[in-house]
Amino acid sequence: MWAQIVLNMANDGAKKFYEIGPGKVLQGLIKRIVQDVEISGFDKLEDIQKISGN
C-alpha cells in the first residue's frame, strides 16, 4: 500500500515530502516511486526549528 499512497499523494499535487526521525529509509523509497518531488529529512527537533525560525 505504501507505493500506492505515495503515488496518490503525488498525483494529488504533493511536491514536497519530509521524513522526520533518524535515517533516510522513507526518503529512498519515495525517490524510487516518484522522481519529480522534493524530499527532505530531519533527524532532530533542532533541525526543524532551524528552518522554521523558532
Rank of each mutant, 00 (worst) to 15 (best):
G23R: 08
K31L: 00
V37P: 05
L29I: 10
Q35W: 04
I20K: 01
L29R: 11
K44I: 07
I20D: 05
V37I: 12
M9K: 05
G13I: 00
K16T: 09
G21Q: 06
A10I: 00
E46G: 08
R32A: 12
R32I: 02
G23S: 12
G13F: 02
I48D: 04
D47P: 09
L29Q: 14
L45Y: 08
V37C: 08
K16F: 03
Y18A: 15
E38S: 10
L26G: 07
V25Q: 08
F17P: 01
I30N: 11
K16S: 03
G13C: 03
L45K: 11
D43T: 14
F42Q: 07
L26W: 08
D36E: 13
G23F: 01
E19A: 06
L26I: 15
A14F: 11
G28C: 09
G13L: 03
Q27G: 11
K16H: 04
G41Q: 08
K44N: 14
V25F: 13
I20E: 06
A10L: 00
G21P: 07
V25E: 12
F17Y: 10
F17W: 02
Y18F: 15
L45F: 07
D43N: 13
K31D: 09
K31E: 12
K44V: 08
Q35D: 15
I48M: 09
A10K: 06
I33Y: 13
L29F: 09
V34G: 02
Y18D: 05
I20P: 03
G21C: 06
K31C: 01
L29P: 00
M9E: 00
K15A: 05
D47H: 15
I20C: 12
F17T: 01
E38N: 10
K44E: 15
P22Q: 05
S40P: 00
L29K: 12
F17N: 04
S40F: 10
D12S: 10
L29M: 13
I33K: 12
A10Q: 08
S40G: 04
G23P: 06
